[in-house]
């Protein structure tokens, strides 16, 4: 099995307000096409780990490999490029640019990547919105749609550059049970139909049970 993402002995400390060892010797691997969930008590370091895995946080010790490439030797601009191209991120809160249309929100990462023409990107974005069942919202402003819809739009955005892996930090944590079931089913489908690799932090045991593998965390360590 080929690892799309792998860590070796990742340690992280917070210095403020007191020195605090938040992640301890984290060594995990996510394989291509795998749907993995991370579970653990609140405050055990799940979000912190995810920020490191997503390359946004660079203040850690240890090694992070994405598609076999070591991340700690990369410059900030290289990392931005890698996030843009290979990683889709879904946040707990619906992080969309409120003044832009839904469609534009989905298009922006692809426009930044600049691999295709604007017309192609637009068609692709419409297609992703259709996969998530929110294509009728495409021309509305992002601030004018409901919470569940926003979360689906941000999944569409995460998909736009056909990333190697999608990460989610409690993507259903802020939704009612109906909407969260909906979003979970979509993620499950993406994994089954398109062979997407997924790494999702969740509190929801029901949710986690339906994933391929559960990583249990506690007190900064992986059990």
């Amino acid at each position: 099995m080929e690892a799309i993402l792998e860590t070796k002995n990742i340690n992280k400390y917070f210095m403020q307000p007191v020195k605090f060892h938040v992640l301890k010797d984290i060594s995990i691997a996510i394989n291509r096409g795998e749907f993995v969930s991370i579970m653990g008590k609140s405050g055990c370091g799940k979000s912190t780990l995810l920020y490191i895995l997503s390359t946004m946080d660079t203040a850690y010790e240890g090694e992070l490999y994405i598609e076999g490439e070591l991340m700690s030797t990369k410059t900030r601009n290289d990392l931005a490029r890698i996030r843009n191209e290979k990683i889709g991120f879904v946040f707990q809160f619906h992080y969309l640019l409120p003044e832009f249309t839904v469609l534009k929100n989905v298009m922006l990462p692809a426009l930044k990547l600049g691999r295709e023409s604007e017309a192609v990107i637009k068609a692709k974005a419409m297609n992703k919105l259709a996969i998530l069942g929110v294509e009728e919202q495409a021309h509305k402003k992002a601030s004018r749609i409901s919470g569940g819809q926003k979360q689906r739009v941000s999944i569409a955005r995460a998909l736009i550059n056909d990333p190697k892996i999608i990460m989610g930090d409690e993507p259903t944590g802020n939704l009612d049970s109906k909407n969260s079931e909906n979003v979970f089913n979509i993620l499950r489908d993406l994994s089954d139909q398109f062979g997407l690799s997924l790494l999702v932090v969740t509190h929801d045991t029901e949710f986690a049970k339906k994933t391929d593998r559960i990583i249990e965390m506690g007190d900064g360590m992986v059990f």
Binding site: S54, M56, R76, N77, A80, R81, R83, N84, E85, F89, F91, Y95, L96, L97, P98, L108, P109, K112, L113, R157
Partner: peptide, 15 residues
């Protein structure tokens, strides 16, 4: 928030 989203989705600091 916009700045955070742009950076998380691959825009560089210089962008």
């Amino acid at each position: 928030n916009d700045i955070a989203i742009l950076k998380a989705t691959g825009f560089t600091g210089s962008d």
